[in-house]
Design a protein around this nucleic acid. Structure first.
Length: 362
DNA sequence: AACTATTCCAACCGCAACAAA
DNA sequence: ATTTGTTGCGGTTGGAATAGT
């Protein structure tokens, strides 16, 4: 999938990653950990730029990725968070364990947007695609000032395990006082200081406070949810509460962190189905060892387990198994489809197991 | 069956932010 | 203070898969 001819002096491969490249990258990270992306291609023997390697890892190869269809709860949460944060995909993804910002973004653009429009809601503003008059009344800065019940689109049962009870738009928005659109609302986080168990929607607090927590930029940044969004991935991988780096950037952990202990990396996301036939299955995801490594009892792991349990109904049969190991199947890239590639897949699985073991031991 | 249109998503690009030199 | 290198983020795009005719 060469997007552009590109005129770089150094010939770098572009487009879809081959299983061999994936394997190289996985093996490299297994050996050295992630970080120092600029040096990864050289060491790993990849003809890719470091940036591309990083992206591939974050968006596709990471073991704690939860592939497959978004659940109703996730969808609702995305809509909620988008109404508050706008296109801050990394921050939204940070609240969705196992999801990447890219994935959330794509999901939004391909599905939610359309859905909202069908319901007469402007996906950009979360306001009704009003017949002339109404929309004009709202001031541009108070993006949620007009926020109808319908906009919440909480189609899941009210008060579901991961979602707040259906609250009226008014109580949800107005009760927080002025919302200046700059995230200026000073709100507490949930009472344990985290957005635990996927719960910015904390169960035992009143709703307003919870959403105030969401609105607090710091709280959002410091969420303890394991995530694969670009911004928080490495924190979760390293078993470090992102809160520890809340006011920092991930660079320190990113760079040459060979001591990452991803043992608690998003455990519980062992199953998934896919949306519209885009089954992505990675060998890692079968690695019970990874999830079983979650022993430090942090909230993230618990949250992940809890959330993963919600997906229990999703069956492995959704994947294509051939000869004992799964194949990649996805819309845009059908990897390991033929026998040769299947052999590669087997290798990849083996390597992944090795990787998982290594990580658990780290 | 063949062709066209649409959908979906992996990957790329450019820019911003940050740290180190 | 400036330059350089690296990472993070959001927007965009190309093309395979799928749906429709």
């Amino acid at each position: 999938m060469s997007k552009r001819p590109g005129g770089t002096k150094k010939r770098l491969k572009r487009g879809l990653w081959s299983p061999e490249e994936d394997e190289k990258l996985m093996n490299h990270i297994a050996k050295y950990g992630n970080g120092c992306w600029s040096s990864v291609p050289k060491i790993a023997g990849l003809e890719r730029c470091g940036k591309s390697c990083r992206l591939r890892w974050i968006n596709y190869l990471r073991p704690d990725l939860k592939r497959g269809a978004f659940s109703q709860e996730e969808e609702d949460l995305i809509i909620h968070l988008h109404s508050i944060l706008g296109n801050k995909w990394s921050q939204i993804a940070a609240q969705l364990p196992g999801r990447t910002d890219n994935e959330v973004k794509n999901f939004w653009n391909s599905f939610i947007k359309k859905k909202l429009r069908q319901r007469g809601i402007d996906p950009a503003t979360h306001k009704p695609l009003a017949p002339a008059g109404a929309a004009a009344a709202a001031t541009p800065v108070s993006r949620s000032a007009v926020f109808s019940e319908a906009e919440l689109i909480l189609s899941s049962p009210v008060g579901g395990p991961h979602m707040p009870p259906l609250v009226s738009a008014e109580s949800y928005v107005y009760s927080r006082g002025s919302m200046d659109g700059a995230g200026g609302v000073v709100g507490g986080c949930s009472d344990d200081g985290s957005l635990s168990s996927l719960s910015g929607y904390n169960n035992n607090n009143n709703q307003t406070a919870d959403f105030a927590g969401y609105l607090d930029a710091d709280a959002l940044h410091g969420a303890v949810i394991p995530s694969v969004s670009s911004s928080s991935t490495l924190n979760s991988m390293a078993g470090v509460s992102p809160g520890g780096a809340a006011n920092g950037n991930a660079t320190d952990e990113l760079c040459c962190n060979n001591n990452n202990n991803p043992s608690n990396s998003g455990s519980g996301f062992e199953s998934s189905t896919t949306q519209s036939s885009s089954n992505h299955h990675l060998p890692w995801l079968e690695l019970g060892s990874i999830s079983s490594c979650t022993e430090d009892g942090n909230a993230a792991g618990a949250a992940a387990d809890h959330y993963g349990a919600a997906l229990d109904e999703l069956k492995w049969s959704d994947y294509v198994f051939d000869g004992g190991y799964p194949q990649y199947h996805q819309q845009g890239q059908c990897i390991y489809g033929d026998s040769k590639a299947a052999a590669d897949a087997a290798t990849a699985q083996f390597d992944a197991h090795g990787l998982g073991i290594n990580w658990c031991l780290n």
